[in-house]
Amino acid sequence: MDLTIIVFLLGGLFLGWSLGANDAANVFGTAVGTRMIRFQTAAIVCGIFVILGAVISGAGTTETLGKLGSINALPGAFAACVAAGLAVYLMTKFGLPVSTTQAIVGAIVGWNIYTGSSTNIQVLITIISTWVLCPIIAGLIAMFLFTITKRILRYNTLHILRLDAYTRLLLLLAGAFGAYSLGANNIANVMGVFVPISPFTDINIMNILYLSSAGQLFLLGGIAIAVGVVTYSKKVMLTVGSDLLRLSPVAAFIVVISHSIVLFVFASQGISNFLNSINLPSIPLVPVSSSQAIVGAIIGIGILKGGKEVKWGIAGRIALGWFILPVIAALIAFLSLFVLQNIFNQTISF
């Protein structure tokens, strides 16, 4: 394989690492923040399930992102990824759980503007509307689950220690499910721009193991996310887990499961096909922001508790990051495309 191809792919891998360091923290942040699960355990489980989700169910959201703007040259994809990755890295430095989804969308729009390609406004509106819907749905699911759980626990006489043990197990399972959903939903952010120009060929080993070229990209991206989780996510995990609202371990489980359900629903081709088959409007398969889902769920619980405990200042800072992030990513993409084209003489689009 050409060395330049590997260098360009590194851009995607860097973005994957950023996603692992930042968004993956959402999955186990509440569990680690409340000291229910050790960071080491969380990182290993998260890494494995992110890779599985990316490889098994990553195709749906990738297709949608491809429609937003089809980056058709490897250097262009590289620039978009580096821009998104850098933007996320900068925000992560401040301990803000920002969204890789918004960063990559900003970067793709930046590429579209630089190359004069048209942006599919319909797809952009769909994506942005899911950004708004995502925290609302997560919040509603969290409120529903919180109310039910509270009622169940009220009439249950589980010993505090037994409840603690069950909660740990549930947090781990919910975290694994969340990591799978994150891999499935967000791998498009990491590797989506490379799929149309994948340098790999399909692998078929005696009809037992088949891995398409896109699948290989997803595997690589998944591994990059896993590395990001292990090496850099601890700080954000602690921010999510304790800064926004002091969560009890049971509430932490509800937050994680609500977030995971939202991400899974927006990535599941199975659910989308099922809704279609019973003549219901299908859910768009869109890479949504796991940060928004988690914040939505936490605020949902905070509202149920009367809203006094929610630290709205931090919630506001996070929301501010959502607006700034796509703009920063688009600007960095614009700048790096300029540098690649004019200094390194790279073809950034065909």
């Binding site: 489980v45 010993h159 220690l161 043990a165 740990r168 197990l169």
Partner: peptide, 21 residues
């Protein structure tokens, strides 16, 4: 699994419950 000792966690939990009782 993954450093999460499920069996020993529940064993420990029951033992602690007994001790507190």
């Amino acid at each position: 699994m993954f450093g999460f000792k499920t069996e020993s966690l529940f064993g420990q939990t029951k033992q602690l419950e007994r001790e507190i009782d």
